[in-house]
């Protein structure tokens, strides 16, 4: 009897969890963010933030800016390697076509996080607010995690 009862309770808990999860997804999640992380670089210099952004809406959206309470300035950058020479290019707009994915990843697009306002350690949360064009609301706040400098 106890076993049946605990089985029923477990099922209800699972169902409630699933409902809550689906409820949170909702129709507002036109944008999906995956694997948000910030690479901890030694010292006080700029750090890089990486994330995969999926546009599930039927319209093009564009990332036009970002800010963080933990950094003085956040810029959208792309590492460009030409003829064996590496440099960074500032991006005013990063368009994401409907149904497509843009990946901020090492050696490519990244968030350049400048002037850290506090000491950061591996595992610390970093809040970054993204500003999008072509979607309402335009601001999306996302939690990043600090990963070691040697993370791949």
């Amino acid at each position: 009897m106890t076993r049946i009862l605990s089985g029923v309770i477990a099922l209800l808990v699972l169902l409630a969890g699933a409902l809550l999860w689906v409820g949170q997804m909702g129709p507002t999640d036109a944008l999906i963010f995956e694997n948000p992380r910030v690479r901890l670089t030694p010292g006080t210099g700029p750090m890089a933030g990486y994330v995969t952004i999926r546009n599930r809406s039927d319209r093009e959206v564009a990332l036009v800016g970002a800010r963080s309470p933990q950094f003085g300035q956040v810029m959208l950058h792309r590492t460009v390697i030409r003829d064996g020479q590496a440099r960074m290019e500032h991006q005013d707009r990063v368009p994401i076509a409907p149904g497509s994915v843009v990946e901020f990843r090492p050696g490519d697009l990244h968030l350049m996080l400048m002037r850290r306002q506090q000491r950061l350690n591996v595992g610390d949360p970093v809040e970054i607010v993204f500003e999008f064009d072509g979607i309402k609301p335009g601001e999306w706040t996302l939690g990043f995690t600090v990963v070691p400098v040697t993370a791949q």
Binding site: G45, M47, T79, G107, H110, M112, Q152
Partner: peptide, 17 residues
């Protein structure tokens, strides 16, 4: 250079790994 947030840590992380 140490104020290089992306490509330097990426390459040095690969090399050390």
């Amino acid at each position: 250079f140490t104020e290089c947030p992306d490509v330097c840590p990426m390459t040095l992380a690969k090399l050390t790994a």
